[in-house]
């Protein structure tokens, strides 16, 4: 086993912060090098520690709005090497799209309760460090539902299996991972992916995080209100 991944945590709520630290430290390959409570402290810690990843609350002082998302964008543009996981109490597609709208590489949007599932959290950290993307399954479900509601939505024409695959693609899973989850071969997942992209009118992307970006962009645009 190589170097452990160094993680900085930011959350203004002490119990949540500590819970997050414990969840992360359950994974042997992760190490929490700093735990802070404000966006300012987060930036200082990032500069000081030069971590591999940041796990941040979406909502922090002073205004308790979307400081976590702003911090994620700043960190990503200043240090493209550092992956950022945003933990959110909102199961809302809007916030995920806000975070991932301008590029998904090295970013993850997870609901806070995932700290109760340390393996999922650790997985997200590893993914963003690798430059991948992770979107919380609940949020993906919402995104798909929203899109499918629109009239004449191509999403509505997908088969159940195709939907399953699309959902997992949106969550940031690789073909291999999807194949494993669905107990299918990787080649059939590739076929499904081709079919899905054809139905949605998208070009298949070889890299996973690009694929996530394409799918999310599609879902964002297709799920939006139709112009009058």
């Amino acid at each position: 086993m190589g170097e452990r991944l160094r993680v900085v945590i930011a959350d203004d709520h002490y119990l949540v912060r500590e819970g997050t630290r414990r969840a992360l430290e359950e994974a042997a390959d992760l190490e929490v090098c700093a735990a802070v409570g404000t966006p300012g402290e987060l930036e200082e810690a990032v500069e000081r520690e030069q971590p591999d990843a940041v796990v941040t609350d979406i909502r922090m002082p002073p205004s308790h709005q979307m400081e976590g998302i702003d911090a994620a964008h700043r960190i990503r543009s200043a240090h493209p090497r550092i992956g950022v996981v945003v933990l959110s109490q909102y199961a809302e597609a809007t916030y995920a799209l806000e975070l991932l709208g301008d590029g998904t590489a090295g970013l993850a949007y997870l609901l806070k309760e995932r700290i109760g599932d340390p393996s999922q959290l650790a997985h997200a950290v590893r993914e963003v460090v690798r430059g991948g993307s992770v979107v919380d399954p609940d949020v993906v479900t919402l995104l798909l539902a929203r899109t499918a509601h629109q009239r004449r939505s191509p999403v509505a024409t997908l088969t159940d299996r195709e939907r399953d695959v699309l959902e997992r693609m949106a969550q940031g899973r690789t073909n291999a991972a999807i194949a494993e989850q669905l107990h299918l071969s990787e080649s059939s997942i590739e076929k499904y992916a081709t079919a899905i992209f054809a139905k949605l009118g998208l070009r298949d992307e070889p890299q996973t995080h690009r694929r996530v970006a394409a799918v999310l962009t599609y879902l964002r645009d297709a799920g939006r209100a139709t112009p009058l």
């Binding site: 809302e92 597609a93 809007t94 919402l142 995104l143 539902a145 929203r146 499918a148 509601h149 629109q150 009239r151 799920g223 939006r224 209100a225 139709t226 112009p227 009058l228």
Partner: peptide, 22 residues
């Protein structure tokens, strides 16, 4: 917010809006 509301509805909801409202 309305779009988010629509996404949660059990009955399919189509939202149409003036583009300026975004």
């Amino acid at each position: 917010a309305v779009e988010a509301l629509a996404a949660r509805s059990a009955v399919p909801v189509t939202v149409r809006a003036d583009p300026t409202l975004r």
